[in-house]
Amino acid sequence: MSSLRFTLSLALLVALSGSAAAADKLPSFHGDPTQTSVSGLSSGAFMAVQYQVAFSGSIKGAGIVAGGPYYCAAGNVANAAICMGQVPFVPPNPALMVDAAESAAALGQIDPLSDLKNDRIYVFSGTDDTVVRQQAVDATVAFFKLAGVPDANLLYVNDVPAGHAVITPSFGNACDANASPYISHCNVDGQGYDQAGAILTHIYGPLNPPATQPSGQIIAFNQRAFAPATSAMADTAYVYVPKACADGQPCRVHVAIHGCAQSAAVVGDKFYTDTGYNQWADTNNLLVLYPQVDKSLIPFNPQGCWDWFGYTGLNYAVKSAVQMQAIKSMVDTLLAAP
């Protein structure tokens, strides 16, 4: 595990960035931007839904772990309880969310919903999740179906006795936990459930087996270059760079978005080292981007959540939203090498 928990040496930073002075900049690599994918937990899952829907023309697929449908809160935090499935017998209405997405697409604020028909969507809801309950996640599945995602492209896993967490084969809390760091281990059919692998395989198809000991590097970079402090996004974010990508081979990007109270400021390096993405990335030429949001008073974000209800502005769910645009700019930068 220690090989995953180190910062990039000065020599490699120079090699990647060109000079020691530029070491805090996000480096660029070769790759295909149309092979980008996204996943997230909780508020990160709501953000992953928003990102997938808004940029569906250039996003290959998404992994949604305990997240509700697109534009569920409609810009009002008072709707959050319904969107999280916390109001018995009052689930979110996915048809209303599709109407909202169609209206945004008609205005050119997001990509046409027809672009979703070629995308692949993985959705997960643990049966013991007490934070985002299954009736909310059921609505997410219904939303994607109504929006045009074919059944063959949509995988819904809703029978694992998991709490509110990213699921790994062996790291983290007991399977049914609903507690920090919101990473848990579960067994399915007698073996550890590798959620990162399940997400990436569903999106990309058959992949090389994951690395036992990743040989790439985690780079901490200046996220403020992409998002102002008023976005609630942290000063620093992270990207995992497989050796093959650093050596110039073509790569693709997966964006892994943490949940509330799960940024590096709260859980340290656990989300960007222990959720399993890096092992799969290492053998499959995947750059894994780990953007970060921290708690703040201005804007009011006391739990360090991604904006899925409008604390950064009423345009939070469209392409021009400050957090959405920041992620898109980071992805574009990662794949900007000529």
Rank of each mutant, 00 (worst) to 15 (best):
P299A: 08
G40C: 03
W280M: 13
L200V: 09
T168Q: 11
T273E: 11
C175I: 05
P228I: 09
G216Q: 09
A317I: 04
T34Q: 15
S320C: 02
L314A: 15
Q303L: 14
E102C: 01
N301A: 08
G63I: 01
I183E: 11
G67W: 03
I257F: 01
N208V: 08
D274T: 09
P161I: 09
S58K: 14
D99I: 09
L200Q: 09
D269R: 11
R252L: 05
N153S: 07
Q135W: 03
A244M: 08
K60M: 12
Y311H: 02
Q109R: 14
V38M: 11
G268L: 09
L155G: 05
K117D: 01
P181T: 07
A48Y: 03
Y193S: 14
M47F: 15
Y71P: 04
W280L: 11
C175G: 08
Q325K: 15
L13A: 13
V293P: 01
A256D: 09
D138G: 09
N222V: 07
D129K: 05
R224Y: 14
L8A: 13
A73W: 02
A139W: 01
G126P: 08
S19R: 04
D128Q: 15
A237L: 10
L107S: 15
V149H: 00
D189A: 15
L116I: 08
C83P: 00
G216W: 08
S180I: 14
Q262S: 06
A147V: 06
C251V: 01
Q323L: 07
V255R: 07
V288T: 02
G172M: 01
N93S: 08
L10T: 06
F89C: 00
L12S: 04
Y204F: 15
D282F: 13
T312L: 07
A265W: 01
G192F: 14
G163K: 04
M1L: 12
C72E: 05
P210F: 11
I59A: 00
F300K: 07
P228Q: 11
C251D: 01
V87G: 07
S114Y: 03
Q279R: 15
R133H: 10
M1K: 12
G205Q: 12
V166H: 02
F221I: 11
R224M: 10
C251W: 01
A162D: 05
L8R: 07
K328L: 03
Q303V: 13
F6Q: 12
A211Q: 04
S180A: 14
P291V: 10
Q134D: 10
N315S: 13
A62C: 11
V267S: 14
G197A: 05
A246W: 12
Y122S: 11
E102I: 04
Q86C: 06
